[in-house]
Nucleic acid binder design. Structure first.
Lengths: 210, 210
DNA sequence: GTCTATAGGCTGATAGAC
DNA sequence: GTCTATCAGCCTATAGAC
């Protein structure tokens, strides 16, 4: 059945081409500029052909958000390897912020563009136990747990602490993306991140060390 | 010159009607649904008439973002009246989050919708010393200063501390708005806000009280 | 599988009549 | 000041030919 396989391969390739073209349009012209016609032009097929691979524009957009989310998790993942929970926690925060700053349009796409897609993707990732997003959040929670059990952090609900950390780094990134030109007020985001991590760490520490 | 005045009054009235209609459309159908035709239909004038009061759709949108920002500041302002700086700081945070949750679409419009407008409005507000936004941020900074000078907070740069607080509450609100349906993970935003304020307070306190 | 052609919308903005 | 009419363009999605 070599012929059927080749056909399937070609079909999958075209699907990938569509997504790649869509990604490029979003990264170059913004999310709202994404249209079936532009994708068609980029891949040198007619708009009608795209509908053989995706049911709608929303389907493509959703897939892009999914990919963006996965890309973000991939950028944060290396932090997991750190043995020291204090360093691991900091590294997660730093990597999160760095990803947001280095991929502002991807970050916007995931969290700020269309609530319909953000909601669907983030919700799916967090509600299903096996999903990468769920696992990433669990790593965060378990790191907090470790810090508590080692007596470094005072007893604090790991879920709440994790949500605080997430909200904090998300706030730093998304506020920056919302007022990117307001350079006067958010000059050094990396430094702000360090301060945030230090303040939170200090705020939940069992034996304050300032 | 009563006639000229009446005409001016009527002109201003129509301008207000346009903005009111635009606001309603954005709050009911979302920002991207805002169009000149829909506004025209709502005010029962032809689309061409709107152009006598606003140069473009962007002009109207910008004005809406400006108004939204002002509305937010107005909702936070009462916190200024609190004499106790600790309570004042907490109240600012609480009011900020409450406004975001009670006016999600206005909050989205200000910070998450179109960076073009967010940027312009937030930038203008923060860069010009006399603007309400600038003043609000100064109140925050001065509150931190007061806490430091009274020995309640350790010596910390008030600007950095203020940015941290802003980023934190913004993160709480905007993450919630991005994944509104993910109720499992962000059940009680008010409680999360309390934890955030407590952790930050504790993290910068001169004499830890846990 | 891929195309052309098109239905059936929507949009911002403006010229020119009244 | 306000209108009608319209330009010039965008869009998603599909029917039907090849």
């Amino acid at each position: 059945m070599g012929i059927a396989e080749r056909k399937e391969r070609q079909k999958a390739e075209l699907r990938e081409q569509i997504l790649a073209a869509a990604r490029e349009i979003v990264l170059e012209q913004g999310f709202e500029a994404l249209s079936m016609r532009k994708i068609a032009e980029a891949i040198e097929y007619s708009p009608a052909t795209i509908y053989l691979h995706f049911a709608s524009r929303d389907d493509i957009a959703l897939e892009l958000v999914r990919e963006g989310f996965a890309e973000m998790l991939g950028a944060i993942a290396p932090a997991t390897a750190l043995a020291d929970p204090v360093e691991r926690l900091r590294d997660i925060g730093r990597r999160y912020v760095r990803f947001g700053l280095e991929h502002p349009l991807t970050y916007r796409l995931i969290f700020m563009e269309d609530p319909k897609f953000s909601n669907s993707v983030i919700g799916q990732q967090l509600d299903a136990p096996g999903e990468p997003g769920s696992i990433a959040f669990e790593v965060l929670e378990r790191t907090v747990e470790e810090l508590v059990s080692k007596g470094i952090f005072r007893p604090i609900d790991p879920e709440i602490a994790s949500q605080l950390l997430w909200a904090g780094v998300h706030g730093i990134v998304s506020l920056r993306l919302a007022c990117a030109s307001t350079a006067n007020y958010f000059q050094d985001i990396e430094a702000l991140t360090e301060h945030f991590l230090e303040v939170v760490e200090n705020g939940v520490r069992a034996h304050p060390n300032n």
